[in-house]
Design a protein around this nucleic acid. Sequence first.
DNA 1: ATATAATATGTTATATTATAACAAAAATTG
DNA 2: CAATTTTTGTTATAATATAACATATTATAT
Lengths: 130, 130
Amino acid sequence: MLNLLLQEKKSLSAYTILDRLRPQGFRAPLQVYRALDKLIKRGFVHRLASMNAFIACSHPWGEDHTLVAFAICKTCGSITEFDDEAVINNIKKRMQAILFRPQSITLEIQGMCILCQHAVQTYSGGRRPG
Amino acid sequence: MLNLLLQEKKSLSAYTILDRLRPQGFRAPLQVYRALDKLIKRGFVHRLASMNAFIACSHPWGEDHTLVAFAICKTCGSITEFDDEAVINNIKKRMQAILFRPQSITLEIQGMCILCQHAVQTYSGGRRPG
DNA sequence: ATATAATATGTTATATTATAACAAAAATTG
DNA sequence: CAATTTTTGTTATAATATAACATATTATAT
């Protein structure tokens, strides 16, 4: 299953994973969800809350997999994982200010990746000078 | 519906909303989802992606309701909405660095609110000196 | 005012995502 | 190896969300 996720640039839903893994003997959703739970606990996979979907971790050799963020292209579906201490520390500081003890952070930015931005420019011709 | 959400400190699922509004004539999920969509578009309600639930906006008089964050207490379910320019600008700056054009941000911090932290202290007796 | 088009609503059915419950199998432990 | 715990397989079902279509309402133009 991890192989399948690693091959994908986009995220996959649990049921898509199930369908892809049927040839390998997966038959029921629970098999997928249980496998995903383990992979997530071990830091090999992340869940995208805003998409109800799953994606392989981009740096599984790291330590803390609870403080990770994602840029999600709404046009092509590509996911860019990033791990920014400045952003995370900023959030933590803000939480301290309201005396909230953070345990995990869901940070997902929806928008348009550079490739799709370029595709739109090309398609529409862009804006010409004067 | 907005009244119902405004009265709640916790978030409500669409189906909980449906049940609560049955006396007022709501009968089908779509009625709820359609009403929620409108309220969200108008900035009166937010959707919590990590909970599949909905909550009234804390400052509906504001302008931009796409850049808002939530501290979610996993113990009592209370939700604290906050709107921090520093955090948001930090994220935007980071997105610029990878040439990603952000359109909306999902930022939800799961953890424990100050009241529940205090409750735990009281319950367990806390740590005594020397 | 009224025909037309556009938008909104009600309703049924269904799609999608996720977990409960329990039996059987495998692994762990004494 | 017996007892216990943990994992796995399977069926059923819960929880979340949308499609499709009919009907009603509102807006627009004549």
